[in-house]
Computed example of a mutant assay.
Amino acid sequence: MKSLTLPFLILSVASAHAFADNELVKTQSHSDVSSTASRLVTLLENKGMTIFATIDHSDAANKIGATLRPTQLVIFGNPKIGSKLMQCQQSIGIDLPQKMLISEDQDGKVWISYNQPHYLAQRHHLSGCDNVLKKVETALNNFAKKAAQTNNP
C-alpha cells in the first residue's frame, strides 16, 4: 500500500500545475481565459511567431444559442520549425500550425492545453527530428507556463 501512496501524492501535486492527459499537456492558468489568451498571443508575437488565428469557441456557441464555458483557441507557428518537421514526415502538416486551447473547466479553473510533441512524432512516425521536437517541446512548455502567470505581459 505504501508504494501506491507516494506516486499518487506526486501525481496529485503535479496535476495542480501541469500534466499530460490523452497526449495533451495541460497547465493551469491563474487568470481568466481572455487574459490568458491575450498574454499567450503577446508572448508568441514577442518570440517572432506568426499568429494565424484566435478562435473564440464560446462566442461562436453563443451566436447559435448554445452555452459553452469560456474557450479560446490560438493557432500559431514558425515556418522555420514547421518546415523542418514536415521534411522529416510531411503528414505532420495536418497537425501544424501549433495550437493551444485556453478553456475554463466545470470548477472554474482555467487550463492551457496543447498536443504533446512526442505524441505527434509517434502519430506521424517521425524519425531524425529528435532535436527539433525537443526544441518544440521546450518552447511550448515555456509559452504555457509564462501565459499562465499573472505577472507577464
Rank of each mutant, 00 (worst) to 15 (best):
A16L: 15
I94K: 02
S127Q: 02
Q72T: 14
V110H: 06
N115A: 12
S58D: 14
T67K: 08
C129H: 09
I92F: 08
K2W: 05
T138K: 12
K146D: 15
A53T: 04
I81P: 04
P97M: 10
S35A: 15
A66C: 12
A53M: 11
K145S: 06
A121I: 00
D105A: 12
A66S: 02
K99A: 04
A18K: 05
S35H: 10
G93K: 04
H125M: 08
Q106T: 09
H125R: 08
Q87W: 08
L101C: 07
I55T: 11
K63F: 15
K146M: 07
S15Q: 04
L96D: 00
S113E: 05
R69F: 06
K109Q: 15
D21K: 09
V13W: 00
G93R: 14
K63L: 12
M49G: 08
P7K: 02
T27Q: 05
G93N: 06
A60M: 13
L96C: 00
R123W: 01
L4F: 13
S34I: 10
A66H: 12
I55K: 04
L11E: 06
N46K: 11
Q90L: 14
N131Q: 07
M100K: 01
K109W: 07
Q122D: 05
S91H: 01
I55G: 00
Q116Y: 13
S15R: 08
L4K: 04
T27M: 05
S91Y: 01
E45N: 06
I75T: 08
T5A: 11
D95V: 03
G108Y: 07
G108D: 04
N62T: 09
D59P: 02
I102Y: 11
L6I: 06
A147C: 00
S35C: 08
T5K: 07
K135G: 07
M49Q: 09
L96T: 00
A148S: 14
K134T: 11
A148W: 05
Q72Y: 07
S12R: 05
S12Y: 12
G93Y: 09
G128D: 03
M100S: 10
L101P: 01
N78I: 11
